Each structure stands twice: as C-alpha cells, then as structure tokens.
Simulated assay, not measured.
Amino acid sequence: MWGSMLLALATGLIIGVIFQSLKIPSPAPPFLGLLGLLGMFLGQNAVPWIKTLLNH
C-alpha cells in the first residue's frame, strides 16, 4: 500500500513540475482537487471500517 501511495505522490510531483515548467494551467483548482482526493481517500477507507463495525 505504501509503495502505491509513494508512486502516486511521485507521479503527481513530476506532473506538477512539468505543468509549471510548460506554464500549463492546472486542470482543476488546487484546493478543490485536493478536497476531492481527500474525499475519495476517506471514502475508500471508510468502507472496510464500516464493514468491520457491522460484523462485530
């Protein structure tokens, strides 16, 4: 799991550097994009947690 997260972070950093170097505008507002990613992360982690609670 950590390997995937580090790969995603590294990829995001590389793409960010490329976008900034080429003066390409970000495809999404940075703050809203981060909130969306946070929501996706929390949603993905909430499902197993809720299943565990319901099974006990």
Results as ranks from 00 to 15, higher is better:
residue 50 I to V: 15
residue 33 G to E: 03
residue 16 G to C: 04
residue 56 H to L: 11
residue 48 P to F: 03
residue 16 G to F: 12
residue 43 G to W: 03
residue 56 H to R: 15
residue 35 L to V: 10
residue 27 P to T: 04
residue 28 A to G: 02
residue 43 G to F: 14
residue 11 T to G: 05
residue 5 M to V: 12
residue 47 V to G: 02
residue 13 L to K: 00
residue 9 L to K: 00
residue 27 P to H: 04
residue 32 L to D: 07
residue 42 L to H: 01
residue 38 L to R: 04
residue 25 P to F: 01
residue 15 I to K: 00
residue 11 T to E: 06
residue 20 Q to K: 08
residue 10 A to T: 15
residue 8 A to Y: 05
residue 22 L to T: 11
residue 37 L to G: 12
residue 12 G to R: 00
residue 23 K to E: 14
residue 47 V to N: 00
residue 37 L to P: 00
residue 39 G to C: 10
residue 14 I to T: 12
residue 49 W to R: 10
residue 52 T to V: 04
residue 22 L to N: 07
residue 11 T to A: 14
residue 49 W to M: 10
residue 25 P to E: 12
residue 9 L to A: 13
residue 4 S to C: 03
residue 19 F to Y: 13
residue 35 L to G: 00
residue 20 Q to Y: 11
residue 40 M to E: 04
residue 33 G to A: 11
residue 17 V to S: 04
residue 53 L to I: 13
residue 41 F to G: 01
residue 36 G to R: 07
residue 13 L to N: 00
residue 35 L to N: 04
residue 25 P to Y: 03
residue 31 F to S: 06
residue 6 L to R: 09
residue 48 P to R: 02
residue 43 G to H: 01
residue 8 A to L: 15
residue 44 Q to S: 07
residue 20 Q to H: 12
residue 13 L to D: 04
residue 31 F to V: 13
residue 28 A to D: 06
residue 51 K to R: 15
residue 41 F to H: 08
